[in-house]
């Protein structure tokens, strides 16, 4: 074979280019540690998603330390959950699967991007160093409403993040003079224990209670409210635990107006 010197040189240069490209990609894998979506998370029957240990309840879960898991189900044409909140400085592993057709889970403006194929679970671990807000979109055609499929990922400052949930149970109306209570359940989704203070403000009154909850635990709080001191009328109340607030209104009525209803 009769190959011109210039062409031989170009052949060598082309090989250098190809090897250089492969070397760059390899550097990305071992240097910054970029991992590909692979088959680690296994397969799943899309008809059993609701009973699946991971996807039965979607959302953010704390694993301990700065590690979190987010379980997401994609379907035509939404994500469950559609809004995700994680703290800055965390390492988050997303598990995503599809209930119907192929979708993607793509965090706009980042390199977080995976196909979501029914029957498969996509797993990807991401470090979020800085607070920020990112859109999530589906970039694989999934039917006529494909372009409406979106979500939101918010990375909040570390000190503003918790997995505390607050729910209350309080009467709407109470007869003056009767004892009544406002009950609250505080659950702590973090693995670490939670020590904080719950504050109930009602009318001019303020009650405080120290709360200590184990990791993955919850506490019941009971506030006895002195209706005499409140007097008859509508009284707005607010129960605060950290940044979480629940509020309502308690009507104190005279004895003839009604009973102690609790609905």
């Amino acid at each position: 074979m009769n190959i011109h010197t210039y062409e031989k040189a170009w052949l060598v240069a082309a090989m250098v280019l190809i090897v250089g490209f492969i070397a760059t990609i390899t550097y990305g894998a071992v240097g910054p540690g970029i991992a590909m979506i692979d088959d680690d998370a296994g397969s799943i029957d899309p008809n059993e998603i609701s009973d699946h240990e991971r996807f039965g309840e979607t959302g953010v879960e704390h694993l301990g330390g700065n590690e979190y898991e987010v379980n997401v189900v994609a379907q035509a044409w939404s994500y469950s959950p559609s809004e995700i909140e994680v703290p800055a400085g965390s390492e988050v592993t997303f598990y995503v699967t599809s209930r119907d057709v192929t979708h993607s889970f793509t965090v706009v403006g980042t390199n977080v991007n995976t196909m979501v194929v029914p029957g498969q679970i996509s797993e990807m671990t991401v470090q979020f160093d800085e607070p920020g807000e990112y859109g999530i979109l589906c970039n694989e055609y999934c039917g006529e409403g494909h372009h409406t499929m979106e979500g939101l990922l918010t990375v909040v400052p570390e000190d503003e993040f918790d997995l505390t949930e607050l729910s209350t149970d309080a009467p709407r109306e109470v007869e003056a003079g009767n004892e009544t209570t406002i009950n609250a359940t505080v659950s702590n989704g973090m693995q670490d224990g939670l020590e904080t203070t719950a504050t109930l403000e009602i009318g001019e009154q303020q009650y405080e209670r120290d709360v200590t909850i184990d990791g993955e635990g919850s506490a019941e709080l009971t506030f006895d409210v002195d209706t005499d001191a409140l007097g008859e009328g509508e009284h707005d109340w607010t129960l605060t635990v950290d940044d979480h607030e629940e509020s309502g209104t308690l009507s104190v009525v005279s004895g003839t107006d009604g009973g102690d209803t609790n609905e």
Binding site: A14, M15, I18, F21, I25, D38, D39, M115, Q120
Partner: peptide
């Protein structure tokens, strides 16, 4: 075309990349 597909191990993706890069030649 399936670099971001779940259910395919990274090693197979790497082999496909190597073949693809040599297809530049």
């Amino acid at each position: 075309h399936q670099y971001l597909d779940p259910g395919i191990a990274e090693g197979y993706k790497f082999i496909a990349m190597t073949n693809t890069m040599f297809l530049l030649l």
